[in-house]
């Protein structure tokens, strides 16, 4: 159910808008963190990778700020119906976005360990996979801000592409490891990177389900909420 009109109490609108703003800001930071960690991985930028690790603290801080504001909103405004669902969704989404930030940090931490991995073919696939996964995050958070249930469903549908990338990279890396045991260490790191990106896609899907519930009051039904087979 969409809400076009504002609250009689304007301060209530401001509180909700601020909450949406915080989630949006967190999403941008997480998006940048993943993209930047991938750039550092491709360009062997270990210093840049350190900065990604450092900047994750900002996402953590915003998560705490979101939690505080949600608790305040519930205590002071006693939100009902769509407002209450929005507040709960914001709280849950902030936790998920924080986790996405952790994946970026995890990828960045592997950058110094991947020196010389550029020969391994799947490296070239990772940036595209990262692009799809991060776009999903950006779009699903836009859907939250705009209370756009259909937008949330569309994000879910894109998760298959991320999973397909992961399956492909997984198989290729296995081949590399079998061909040359010297590649095992670096391939394992790349496998983790790919897994992290795959998880980012899954988290975007989870957020989409939260957005859908917040916007409509109904839980997303199959097949949009598809739970696919996992290779690993």
């Amino acid at each position: 159910m969409q809400q076009q009109t504002g609250h009689t109490l304007k301060a209530f609108d401001e509180d909700i808008d601020r909450l949406r703003g915080l989630i949006s800001e967190m999403g941008q930071l997480a998006h940048q963190a993943i993209r930047e960690s991938m750039r550092c991985l491709i360009e062997r930028d270990t210093e840049g990778a350190l900065r990604v690790v450092e900047r994750d603290k900002e996402i953590d801080r915003l998560e705490i700020e979101t939690e505080k504001r949600v608790v305040q909103l519930i205590a002071l405004r006693a939100p009902m119906a769509g407002d209450l669902r929005d507040a709960v969704a914001a709280l849950k989404i902030s936790g998920v976005v924080e986790r996405i930030g952790d994946y970026a940090k995890n990828i960045a931490k592997r950058v110094p360990l991947l020196d010389g991995a550029s020969d391994i073919e799947p490296v070239s696939l990772l940036p595209e996979m990262a692009r799809i996964a991060t776009d999903m995050v950006t779009d699903v958070l836009r859907a939250f801000v705009e209370r756009d249930a259909k937008g949330a469903v569309r994000v879910c549908e894109r998760d298959q592409a991320v999973d397909d990338f992961y399956d492909s990279i997984f198989r290729t890396l296995l081949t590399h490891m079998m061909e040359n045991p010297h590649n095992i260490g670096q391939s394992a790191h790349l496998l983790f990177v790919a897994k992290n990106l795959e998880r980012v896609g899954d988290h975007a899907t989870n957020i989409a389900e939260m957005v859908y519930y917040a916007a409509t009051g109904e839980h997303m039904v199959e097949p949009s909420k598809k739970r696919r087979r996992k290779t690993t």
């Binding site: 809400q3 009109t5 504002g6 609250h7 009689t8 209530f12 009902m80 769509g82 669902r85």
Partner: peptide, 19 residues
């Protein structure tokens, strides 16, 4: 009624958007 009302008028009233 308080988490997912069916009618827009109910939603507007209980969330403080009415009138």
């Amino acid at each position: 009624m308080f988490t997912n009302p069916r009618e827009q008028r109910t939603q507007d009233y209980i969330t403080g958007r009415y009138g």
